[in-house]
């Protein structure tokens, strides 16, 4: 069956064909020029929902990454202070052993007591270590130095469990809370007390007390510090492994977002070439369609 074709149809058909081919051509061009295949929600609604979701999770992971860095810096500061505390306590223990010796004369004892006092002073300044503008050993009272000199000793003025303001908590993941701080009353207050007793006992020649009680007391403090440092070390490990895991997820999510939003260049270039060919073909066929007419043959 043959259809009757009117001249209008040829014109309309050519126009529709040309404009469709041209629109595909410019679409392909736009994708390459912008580098994006998702420029507005209707380009790919489900892809948009996914990419928004991934973007938000990326942003959240980025934020957790920032928090992890903060936590790590804070904990590392505490840890390095406690490392110094550890060395100071070992020094003090050596002095204690010397002080307990019966061969040590009184002048030497006073000298040892003075050195122990120096250690106490150093502990006091270590207890006021800060990360950024925050005092790390003051519990939630981060803005005031937690150890305040009081005669030969120090008073702890930071937050404590008893006063309900001990812990500095950070969320390092959804519902994953990490306590980043150690309050000074757990380390410095007992260590300074033990060293003060040691100092006095050495100064007063209480050899027996020094050897039977004070050295054990210093050992106890060393154990406490070692325990706390181990805890902080494991927290740093946890932070590092969480960060590593987050980085892997971020790489994946970034790729997924890019897959959805960014133009697949090789594919787009092929599309551009195909649509260009189609456009040229539409133009050529239009020219051909109007080339022949009965008018050419009428004389």
């Amino acid at each position: 069956m043959t259809f009757r074709i009117s001249s209008t149809q040829i014109v309309d058909g050519s126009l529709i064909g040309i404009s469709a081919a041209y629109s595909r051509f410019t679409d392909a061009q736009e994708k390459i020029n912008s580098g994006k295949q998702l420029n507005k929600p209707s380009d790919n609604p489900s892809g948009l929902a996914q990419s928004l979701d991934f973007t938000e999770q990326l942003s959240e992971l980025g934020q957790f990454g920032k928090t992890l860095d903060q936590a790590r810096g804070f904990i590392a500061t505490s840890e390095s202070s406690l490392d110094s505390v550890n060395s100071l306590l070992r020094q003090a223990r050596t002095f204690a052993v010397q002080g307990a010796s019966t061969s040590t004369n009184d002048t030497a004892r006073q000298a040892i007591a003075g050195q122990i006092q120096d250690i106490i002073n150093q502990l006091g300044s270590l207890g006021n270590a800060s990360y950024g503008s925050r005092y790390v050993f003051g519990g939630q009272r981060t803005t005031t130095p937690p150890l305040v000199a009081n005669g030969t000793g120090f008073n702890y003025t930071g937050g404590t469990t008893a006063t309900g303001d001990a812990d500095l908590n950070l969320d390092i993941g959804r519902g994953e809370t990490l306590t980043t701080n150690v309050t000074g009353d757990r380390v410095f207050t007992p260590a300074i007390a033990a060293l003060a007793k040691l100092r006095d006992d050495v100064a007063n020649g209480q050899d027996l007390t020094v050897s039977q009680q004070d050295i054990t007391a210093v050992d106890d403090q060393l154990n406490t510090v070692v325990g706390i440092r181990a805890d902080l070390g494991s927290k740093i490990n946890r932070i590092d492994s969480t960060k590593q895991r987050n980085e892997l997820i971020k790489v994946n999510f970034t790729k997924l977002v890019s897959d959805i939003q960014d133009t697949d260049i090789p594919k787009a270039v092929i599309e551009l070439q195909t649509s260009q060919t189609a456009y040229q073909a539409a133009l050529q066929s239009t020219v051909r369609a109007f080339q022949t007419s009965l008018l050419d043959f009428l004389k």
């Binding site: 928004l52 973007t55 938000e56 942003s59 959240e60 980025g62 934020q63 957790f64 920032k66 928090t67 903060q70 936590a71 950024g132 503008s133 925050r134 981060t142 803005t143 908590n169 950070l170 969320d171």
Partner: peptide, 20 residues
């Protein structure tokens, strides 16, 4: 969407430095 994330991220920053 980005601004919502931005606000909640800033709350998270605040939790790490509430005195700032």
């Amino acid at each position: 969407g980005g601004q919502l994330s931005g606000l909640f991220n800033s709350f998270s920053d605040l939790s790490a430095s509430p005195e700032s």
